[in-house]
Amino acid sequence: MAIHQRPATPDSVLWQHEAEAHDDIATRTLGFWLYMMSDALIFAALFAAYGVLDQTTNLAGGPGAHQIVHPLAGFWQTLAVMTSVFAYSLASVAMKMRSQPGVILYITIALVLGLVFIGLELGDFARLIALGDGPDRSGFLSIYFVLIGTHGLHMAFGILWMLVMIVQVARSGFTPSIVARLLNLRMFWQFQASVWVCVYAFVYLRGAF
């Protein structure tokens, strides 16, 4: 904490009514971190439901995980999401270097890779639905679509957030609010990589055994 030593003057106050060195950015990132912890519990509930419904009784004659997941195709998604997170991480290195064009360039790369990820996922969904194996086919397929789709929805909101940040950085530069938002988006985007590691192992790899 930065302490400002001031000489005593006749109008010095005896006490401060609020903390003098209030760390706004740290407060905002901790608050966002706590949101992410509660978001992790939403995923925990979905993983639990997936674990319960991934059973022969819940297939209702439809395909099981073994028939619908392709771990190698899922690995391209892993590659897309990890590279996107790495690109966003480089954007925060560019922010440290005070480079506005650098931040915009790397966020754009992260955004494009995020779109690639979502495109691959929507392709999977479209193929399944075309075969008549949509979320209404069985209990298992319902939770499959909801679990994968919830992660995809997070990715979509991250992409929307990136679009907003590109505009804000281009227009206003590194104001305290924008820096706090860029830091929160970094955590949010890295968090999607962590969730994807769990989804990939739990659904794609375990399903392919």
Binding site: A21, D24, I25, A26, T29, L90, K96
Partner: peptide, 23 residues
């Protein structure tokens, strides 16, 4: 740590970014 009126880019969470660690 950044305080009111200070450069936000000097905040410890901005300084924590490192290419090597991320790679």
């Amino acid at each position: 740590m950044a305080t009111h009126g200070q450069d936000p880019l000097l905040h410890s969470e901005v300084r924590q970014a490192s290419t090597g660690g991320y790679f």
